[in-house]
């Protein structure tokens, strides 16, 4: 870090800017946590103090054992993991094809995929409802996986395509010269180098599905098929906005996302392809 030695003021400024940003970005999360551990009777009386005078885990206990929260949580996990897996699998295949092959209709397919991203969701919610209803899939988690997958594929495909584009074609060709079939080259050389891309796509799709509310609200009305964001709304009606429990549920809902990103973050490290070519 030559910069650090020669320009301490600049470095300090940089860290100050980072700190300011972090405070701004993390403050809502802090507030979420704060309210979750504040005893109910103090929420309104203590107002906006930064730290409550006493702490409690009651909210967590209630949410976990006296509501259907765990149920919603499981549903959400199932839907999000299913969506992430299905989307990433399809997007990886499509992205590879777009990146490596020239085929008839490629431009048109890409154009159509782009167009699907242009419609506001509200516009297509009614037709989607009709389609899902006529398939008899209302109130099923499968319908959510199908719909989410369909919606996420275009973006995920472009994401994967750009990751494949970043891997020099020479590597595959070298593998083929070394005796690989195209599939072997894909598995042994390209796949390991695409792990960051797969990780990023999985993470992106997982989070998108995890926090989706609109379709879940529309297609699910039965309690046992509710996902977490829909379930969160039940705190509003049932307990006349039980802030403490709602926030506790929110904190718990962050856990899988965090775990997921901790799990994939080692694949997100950059520079996996460095050294391949004489740059």
């Amino acid at each position: 870090m030559t910069v650090a030695r020669s320009k301490p003021i600049l470095t300090a400024g940089k860290y100050a800017a980072l700190l300011a940003y972090l405070t701004f970005a993390l403050f809502p999360l802090y507030w979420l946590l704060k309210i979750a551990i504040t005893p109910d009777q103090l929420i309104f009386s203590e107002g906006t103090t930064l730290w409550p005078s006493s702490l409690t885990l009651d909210n967590f206990r209630t949410v976990l054992f006296q509501t259907d929260f765990l149920y919603y949580f499981g549903n959400s996990l199932y839907v999000s993991l299913g969506t992430a897996a299905a989307t990433t699998l399809i997007a990886a295949g499509a992205g590879y094809a777009f990146s490596r092959f020239d085929f008839g209709g490629k431009k048109i397919i890409i154009a159509i995929m782009l167009i699907t991203q242009m419609f506001p969701l509200l516009m297509i919610i009614a037709p989607i409802y009709k389609m899902v209803a006529s398939l008899g899939l209302l109130n099923s988690l499968t319908s959510l996986i199908v719909v989410y997958t369909a919606f996420n594929i275009p973006f995920a495909t472009f994401l994967m395509q750009s990751f494949f584009d970043g891997i020099p074609k020479d590597l595959e060709e070298a593998a083929m010269m070394d005796g690989c079939s195209r599939f072997q080259a894909l598995r042994k050389v390209i796949f390991p180098l695409t792990l960051p891309g797969l990780g990023a796509t999985l993470g992106f799709v997982f989070t998108a599905a995890w926090s989706e509310l609109l379709f879940a609200l529309m297609l699910i009305s039965k309690n046992e098929a509710m996902t977490f964001p829909v379930g969160l709304l039940t705190f509003v009606s049932k307990f006349s906005v039980d802030w403490g429990q709602m926030m506790a549920a929110g904190v718990l809902a962050l856990i899988p996302s965090c775990l997921f990103f901790i799990f994939i973050q080692r694949y997100l490290v950059q520079g996996l392809t460095s050294g391949a070519v004489k740059g």
Binding site: P168, D170, E173, A174, A175, V189, L272, A276, K278
Partner: peptide, 12 residues
């Protein structure tokens, strides 16, 4: 066998 202009070594 081919030696590529870019070397094309497997980075991993």
């Amino acid at each position: 066998a081919m030696v590529f202009q870019s070397y094309a070594l497997y980075p991993h």
